[in-house]
Amino acid sequence: MLEKKEKVLLKKAAAEIEKAKDYTKGKNKRAAIQCLKRKRLYEQQIEQLGNFQLRIHDQMIMLEGAKATTETVDALRTGAATMKAMQKAVNIDDVDKTMDEINEQTENMKQIQEALSTPIGAAADFDEDELEAELEELEGAELEEQLLQPATTAPAASVYVPAGRQPARPVPAKQPAPEEDELAALQAEMAL
């Protein structure tokens, strides 16, 4: 409404200017001055309308800010009330009791796992020292077998290279041991 009124007043001010020009051409100075006075009154009203619009926009911004503040405070109150209700529902003694029950159940599970992992029957009769001695014998036999195998590659022929131009020796690729192959396959299988 204020914007429409402002447009009307702008048209009226423009019309007064035109009238003043017409009176000036007709040498009617008094009528031209009256037109300019009305134009200034219209301009003052236009300025007042501009101030009113500015105040209204300012008020709208303040109301939007107040609404956002109110919503924020309401959300904080709701959160505080929910936290308070949760604290009433969960007592520290209840938490301690629950933690004690969890620890007790964990201890029971460990005892069950230990009982299940204890060898029984024929497996319980094996002597660990005898098994370790047998393993050492197997390792020793395997080492002897590796030492007795003839070398299958011939030594490389020597090549004379002038001083200062020694070629870089390639580092032989290490062949993975069978145990390493098994370990890598097991790790890949567990990764799936």
Results as ranks from 00 to 15, higher is better:
Glu134Leu: 15
Leu76His: 06
Ile56Lys: 14
Ala80His: 05
Val171His: 02
Ala173Trp: 01
Tyr42Gly: 01
Pro155Trp: 04
Cys35Asp: 12
Ala14Glu: 11
Phe52Asn: 15
Lys25Thr: 11
Leu131Ile: 12
Met60Trp: 10
Gln146Ala: 14
Gly50Ala: 12
Glu145Asn: 07
Val161Asp: 01
Arg169Asp: 00
Gln149Ile: 03
Ile33Leu: 15
Pro150Ile: 02
Ala156Gln: 10
Leu2Pro: 05
Ala124Thr: 04
Lys110Asn: 08
Ala20Ser: 13
Cys35His: 09
His57Ile: 12
Lys12Pro: 00
Glu179Trp: 05
Ala66Lys: 11
Glu132Ala: 14
Met60Asp: 07
Ala66Tyr: 06
Lys84Ala: 10
Val8Glu: 15
Asp22Glu: 09
Asp96Trp: 01
Gln87Met: 13
Glu180Ala: 13
Glu144His: 04
Tyr23Met: 08
Leu147Arg: 15
Gln187Asp: 11
Met109Ala: 15
Thr78His: 04
Ala122Tyr: 07
Val73Pro: 00
Leu186Gly: 01
Thr82Val: 08
Arg30His: 05
Ala75Ile: 02
Gln48Tyr: 06
Glu145Asp: 08
Ala115Cys: 03
Asn51Leu: 09
His57Pro: 00
Lys12Cys: 03
Leu49Tyr: 11
Ala122Arg: 10
Glu16Phe: 11
Ala31Ser: 09
Gln48Phe: 08
Tyr160Ile: 03
